[in-house]
Simulated scan of single mutants.
Amino acid sequence: MTAGEIEGTAGRKPRRAQLPLTYGRKSSTEIAFLWFFVTAPLLAVAAAIPVAWIGGWLGWTDVVLFVVMYLFTGLGVTVGFHRYLTHGAFKAKRPMRILLTVAGTMAIEGAPIRWVADHRRHHQFSDEENDPHSPWRFGESVPALAKGMLWAHMGWLFTRENSNSRRFAPDLVADRDIRFIQRNFVAFLLLSLFGPAVVGGLVTQSWHGFVTAYFWAGLVRVGLIHHVTWSVNSVCHVLGERPFRTTLKDRASNVWLLAIPSFGESWHNLHHADPTCARHGVDPGQIDISARLIWLFEKAGWVWDVKWPKEKRIDAKRVVTQ
């Protein structure tokens, strides 16, 4: 983020709606890093099953570190980046605000301000022309939709233009804690990848433990989180059920198969019908781990003003079937 983007232009400030959709361009270095952090974890996921069969390359230390890091960083995205920073589903005390932002950053899906700006833009133009990652971008034929799903899943990450954070995330641009985390994204990236490896090496007292922890709790964990998150962008805008009304072109859907690995994010139809709601899975049997964590935080007094679903409001958004 440039100083101009943070500080704004001199003189009177333009209205947010008048600001351009994009601001600045990704450098060639950023694109190269993107290629690495998209392909390396993906290759690790592809290699995970055969590697697991090799004796000594998957131990209990690796399993525990993988689970802990998947929960910490995955919930950092769903509770921290998404429901809190993007949509304001609750308010949080400063230590919790910082912790949730750090946890989301360590998922290595991008720095917080850029992530939030992209997602708010997505909601404003869901499945319309200016949506940064709609799978319907190229049309509705089978070839166009196949191309669109690949675009929505990961192709859009490589576009040069950045969503304008002064338009879509001015509250985060003005927050010094968030700006600090944004500026130090690379440090949190390294902590996310090598922190588990250091722990694995210390616990096993071996370089072997360092390498296996780096593989499982670092690369494989990042790869799985990436593709679960990106599946909400792609799969959950094409397949699934739509029991709630959204805007005319918005095709956000519920996909139950992704509910547990996405911590409840795949109850995507209700989320687009009521974006600030802290719970996405509102119907019986819809597991929403992120909402349960927010509930625990609320009970502990760490968050407040949680926007829980109200029955009348939810029923008013349901599609009426004849």
Results as ranks from 00 to 15, higher is better:
N233M: 05
G104S: 14
W35R: 15
S290N: 08
G24V: 09
P261Y: 06
L21V: 10
L19P: 08
G59Y: 04
L293T: 08
S134R: 04
C277H: 07
Q205Y: 05
G110T: 05
V303L: 04
L296S: 13
H153K: 10
Q18D: 12
P50L: 11
L71Y: 01
T159P: 00
R120C: 15
G281W: 00
A47Q: 10
A32L: 11
V238F: 11
G264L: 07
M106G: 03
I314E: 00
F33L: 13
R176Q: 13
W57P: 02
K249I: 00
L100H: 06
M69T: 15
G200A: 07
A144T: 01
E7D: 14
V173I: 12
R176W: 05
A259W: 00
C277F: 08
T61C: 02
I314W: 00
V320S: 12
A197G: 12
A32T: 08
T73R: 06
G139Y: 06
H280L: 11
I49H: 11
L157K: 09
H153L: 08
Y84P: 05
S262F: 04
H272G: 05
V232I: 15
L239W: 15
F210W: 10
Q124W: 02
A107L: 01
L157W: 04
P143M: 12
N269F: 03
E311T: 08
